[in-house]
């Protein structure tokens, strides 16, 4: 029941309420997936890019790009029912997204007009929430992940996805209020 109500609210929020949209936020194509020999290289490069992305605006671009990338990774993995890996990617995506307000505040402190960045983050949050809502429909609320040689893990997928949506909305509103 709760899930249905939540979905209804989300659908109303994204589809029914009229809103002016200038350009749709575009998510990236899926990158290397776990199991691919280039996956680890890709993760190392992601880490290295942190040091290259000096500055607040560069850090916003960096963290947002990673959040997008990991969210798409999570979506792809969950579609293939690789829930354990999918939740890990989702956690990483959340973590990257949560970094954003600090850098927006930093840019503002440097004297940059951050209205465009705020809009970008708001658009991203909206798009992320839309994808997460789609995932909520297609994934089970709870899932018991039982690997062959280790203990099973219970994955509260529904809860995790809802938390991710709420976190993104919270970050978007926090950024806008800076």
């Amino acid at each position: 029941m709760k899930k249905t109500c939540f979905l209804l609210v989300l659908i109303t929020y994204f589809l029914v309420l009229p809103r002016s949209v200038f350009a749709e936020y575009v998510m990236p194509y899926p990158s290397y997936m776990p199991g691919n020999c280039m996956y680890k290289v890709s993760r190392i490069l992601d880490r290295l890019k942190f040091y290259w992305s000096r500055g607040n605006i560069a850090q916003i671009k960096y963290h947002l790009a990673l959040s997008d990338k990991y969210l798409i990774e999570a979506k792809t993995l969950m579609e293939y029912k690789q829930y354990l890996l999918g939740t890990d990617a989702l956690r990483r995506s959340d973590k990257e997204f949560m970094q954003l307000p600090a850098y927006v505040a930093g840019a503002k402190k440097e004297g940059v007009n951050v209205s465009e960045l705020e809009r970008l983050i708001s658009d991203a949050a909206e798009k992320h929430a839309q994808l997460l809502a789609e995932l909520l429909i297609s994934t089970p609320n709870q899932f018991m992940w039982s690997p062959e040689k280790s203990k099973p893990t219970e994955l509260p997928l529904g809860e995790m996805l809802k938390t991710s949506v709420v976190e993104r909305q919270h970050i978007a509103s926090e950024t806008a209020s800076l």
Partner: peptide, 17 residues
């Protein structure tokens, strides 16, 4: 040097003011 950004990532136009 003023905005402390990486000029190879950030374009001047990204600082609209």
């Amino acid at each position: 040097y003023q905005y402390h950004e990486n000029p190879y990532i950030v374009m001047p136009i990204e600082i609209p003011n």
